[in-house]
Amino acid sequence: MSTITALGLVLLVVMILVGGKQGAKSFFSLILNFGFLFMAVILMAFHLPPLAVTLITGVVILAITIFMGEDNLVTAQTAFYASLIVLVVLVLLIIPVEHWAMVQGFGEEDSDDLEGMSILIGINFLKIAVTTTVLSTLGAIAEAAMAIAAGLAEIIQQHPQTVPKKLFKNGISIGEQIIGTTFNTLFFGFFGGFLALFIWFSGLHYTFGEVINNKIFVAELIMVLVSFVGVILTVPITAFVMGQRQRILLTGASK
């Protein structure tokens, strides 16, 4: 048995032991997300337009993560709509940022790995950089949107007459509670992976100026910062979507 299969089985077992049916669903959502991610690579290799593939894959991955992770339909729907809005806003931010930064493809530090490979593959790596950045933020957006939506759904359940304006404030204050730990999740998630790169920079005595203009470093830091922006925006947008939902419910009830 390969290590991946064995670890996968261990994860499946502990997820079911701890999470029961929900655990099994979480495991399944992970497999599906992997499938769609890999399919996106294949589709792009067949020269389908990267932006279209990115948007479709993004929506699908958000849907899988949110609807398979949350049983409460009000929470899931609100989180899904909110994360779609955030996705669109982020894509609009990421495209100019990537064109400005020019961090597509590979850096000098990759040359060992690229030996013997043909780099001229006729696919615009700048568009792929947009894809990579969008994809890396999806999980964080989904998670934040679900946390805010779940908190607000509970408030509505306990106080069904809460007005949208109050709900928005509540959403922000839930956001304040989760933002610290969410940032840390992202910080460690990304920086854990950059450990080797940072050791490389330090070991070869890159200057500060070299590091902050380095193609790979800037590419990675853009991902971290864009994820931060995504999570921050998710808070008011989710609160707003839940508020709109409540507005419709309240006016419907008063008629």
Binding site: Q22, T65, G69, S136, A142, E143, T185, M223
Partner: peptide
């Protein structure tokens, strides 16, 4: 149970 799925997916996507 409700947060583990999304969290695992956060790291997975990163």
């Amino acid at each position: 149970q409700t947060i583990m799925g999304p969290l695992v997916n956060v790291l997975f996507m990163i």
